[in-house]
Design a protein around this nucleic acid. Structure first.
Length: 185
DNA sequence: GTGAACTGCGG
DNA sequence: CCGCAGTTCAC
């Protein structure tokens, strides 16, 4: 391992962020952050504003935080456009960071390889986010992701292209969903 | 896991 | 425009 990253978790208080490279930040949202209310969102939004970063959010997904997870996804992935990686604890988060740093230091290494290595969890998080759109279940959500690759891709798609995949009425649901999100901001 | 309701498509 | 097949969603 070439580069060194010191990882310090502040126990269960506050959002901690790490810079693994110039344009990326990794933010850890703890179980306690989630449970204690929406304060963590302000920190994330602020970080988003301050720099045009590619954010990666590691969120503790445990039985305790399961009920908050969909809301977190909606906020982090759709509103902020960050990557969301669920982890079960801080140790796993640390391992993930090490992997990311290792990959980054390799010539031509892909810093996002870690998500591929961990298999389906990331894709599944994205998938269930897309399923939050009314009338979209697993089949149509997969179809959309297959065609447009990402949530951002779906957001940017035209009515015509959306209609090709899920039909006209569902395309309108998709449009309405993202329109709603714009209004809220 | 099952059924009702809805969507899209082909005839 | 109707019926069928596939999908979503609430129970």
């Amino acid at each position: 391992m070439q580069g060194r990253v010191r990882i310090v978790f502040e126990g269960d208080t506050g959002v901690v962020d790490f810079h693994t490279a110039h344009d990326k930040a990794v933010i850890y949202v703890s179980e306690a952050d989630l449970i204690s209310g929406p304060a963590y969102r302000k920190k994330l939004a602020k970080l988003r504003k301050a720099k045009k970063l590619k954010g990666i959010v590691l969120v503790e997904k445990t039985p305790m935080t399961e009920q908050y997870f969909l809301d977190v996804q909606k906020f982090v992935v759709i509103e902020l456009g960050f990557v969301l990686l669920p982890v079960t604890n801080q140790v796993e988060a640390g391992n993930l960071l090490v992997q990311m740093v290792n990959e980054e230091n390799k010539p031509n290494g892909n810093p996002f390889i870690a998500k591929a290595k961990r298999g389906i969890s990331q894709d599944q998080a994205v998938l269930s986010t897309v399923q939050m759109i009314p009338k979209l279940g697993s089949v149509k959500a997969k179809a959309l992701l297959c065609r447009f690759k990402s949530i951002h891709g779906i957001q940017a798609a035209t009515m015509h292209d959306l209609s090709d995949v899920v039909g006209r009425t569902n395309a309108q649901h998709v449009k309405a969903f993202f329109e709603e999100k714009r209004k809220v901001r």
